[in-house]
């Protein structure tokens, strides 16, 4: 199981096996109902590429603050 904390919102437990073969952090983001382009994924408070295979058991999903 991967613990996914959406900062400022909720924490969910996601079973990577439900996300298909070799799930990525982008897949994990979609599993908590966000689009990869609107968040950053942090492991140990460091951003990780969203196309990387999930290799941590605790991740933070940080909604980005940006605009024009």
């Amino acid at each position: 199981m991967v613990t996914v904390e959406v900062v400022g919102e909720e924490t969910r437990e996601i079973d990577p096996e439900t996300l298909g073969t070799d799930p990525t952090y982008a897949d994990l983001v979609r599993a908590v109902d966000y689009s990869p382009h609107e968040v950053s994924v942090l492991v140990d408070d460091q951003p990780v590429p969203e196309d990387r295979a999930v290799d941590a058991d605790y991740v933070r999903v940080l909604r980005l603050i940006k605009g024009g």
Binding site: S40, D45, P47, R60, L62, L64, I65, K66, G67, G68
Partner: peptide
């Protein structure tokens, strides 16, 4: 014309 916070700094 735009703004964006660095995620680490934001956190």
């Amino acid at each position: 014309t735009a703004y964006e916070l660095d995620p680490e700094e934001q956190l």
